[in-house]
């Protein structure tokens, strides 16, 4: 147990919602209705995360990802099951748990909107009671990892989305928490900014041995940062292992790219066990001229897509 930063055992979460009826008449009915139904957002999820690990926590929209994150951060209480963050039950002592975690929600800044970043940092230092030398070391570390000069004196409201995300990530690590939760940290960012953010996360994780739980829809994040991924769908955990393992599971899959006569690339995913690649090429060649061919291993994106679509079972 000691080695785990996060332990979840058979965690469930139910919500009670009003059964709504359709149409104008339904709306008037609902005004007096007491017809509730229970929705299980998370069902029997168990998970162990080692210290210093970065895991990708993936799943389609509405799969129960954010509900799980909210339980891990102590905001929501699970209906049943056990959660230990850093050896403690998060929702039982929210304040204590907050000292050990950092949270970043992409697009939702948690910093003081009108304060310059450095002032936000100073307030956070006070809130988390970070000793002065540790705080200074952290700022030095930040300086070595990213160029913070252009943003350090800028109010958050005047920052670009990328700068804001960067600031939020820095703020989340400031008190050197054991676990940091990153919810879609690269959403809406341009390619170079994404790169910057990823290398920052990687650098901080390496320097401070911080555990990172990353939820994202961007497989670029996963490829760059995570060895291990956990996939949740309809509230149930459907996959929990290394990406490499997953890829080898789909080992017989290849992506075939063909450049056609009009210079456009056509790609298709082929399971070698069932289809012979040469057959596909030859068939295509009868229709049109093929100028170039490239064969690739299945990409993470495609693996995840296959899993979401239910092909992994």
């Amino acid at each position: 147990m000691e080695d785990y930063a996060l332990v979840m055992k058979d965690v469930c979460k139910d919500f009670k919602v009003l059964n709504r009826h359709e149409g104008l008449k339904g709306s008037i009915q609902d005004l007096f209705s007491r017809d509730y139904k229970t929705i299980s957002a998370v069902k029997d999820v168990s998970l162990n995360v080692k210290r210093g690990e970065i895991i990708g926590y993936l799943g389609p929209n509405g799969a129960g990802k954010s509900t799980t994150i909210k339980m891990m951060t102590g905001v929501l209480e699970p209906t049943s099951g056990e959660i230990l963050v850093n050896g403690k039950v998060p929702y039982k002592n929210r304040t204590e748990n907050c000292e050990n975690i950092g949270v970043v929600f992409g697009q939702r800044s948690q910093l003081w909107w009108s304060l310059p970043l450095i002032e936000s940092f100073k307030l956070l230092r006070d809130i988390y009671m970070v000793p002065k030398n540790e705080y200074n070391d952290m700022i030095e570390l930040y300086k070595s990892l990213v160029d913070i000069e252009p943003i350090i004196n800028k109010p958050v409201r005047q920052m670009s989305l990328g700068q804001r995300t960067l600031s939020d990530i820095l703020a989340a690590f400031l008190h050197n928490p054991a676990i940091v939760f990153l919810d879609e940290p690269t959403i809406g960012l341009d390619v170079s900014m994404k790169d910057k953010i990823r290398s920052l996360i990687k650098g901080l994780n390496k320097e401070k041995n911080t555990t990172v739980i990353l939820t994202t829809h961007d497989m670029g994040d996963v490829d760059a940062l995570c060895k291990r991924i956990v996939i949740i769908d309809k509230g149930t955990k459907i996959y929990d292992n290394d990406i490499e393992h997953l890829k080898s599971y789909f080992g017989s899959y290849r992506t075939l790219h063909m450049r056609l006569a009009d210079d456009t690339w056509e790609s298709m995913l082929i399971d070698e066990k069932e289809t012979d690649i040469m057959d596909v090429i030859m068939r295509k060649q009868k229709e049109t001229k093929i100028k170039d061919i490239r064969l690739e291993e299945i990409s993470t994106e495609e693996v995840i897509k296959k899993i979401y679509e239910g092909d992994a079972a």
Partner: peptide
């Protein structure tokens, strides 16, 4: 109509 339904939602 959408406005009516939305207002009624918040019973």
């Amino acid at each position: 109509r959408a406005g009516i339904m939305e207002s009624l939602q918040f019973r």
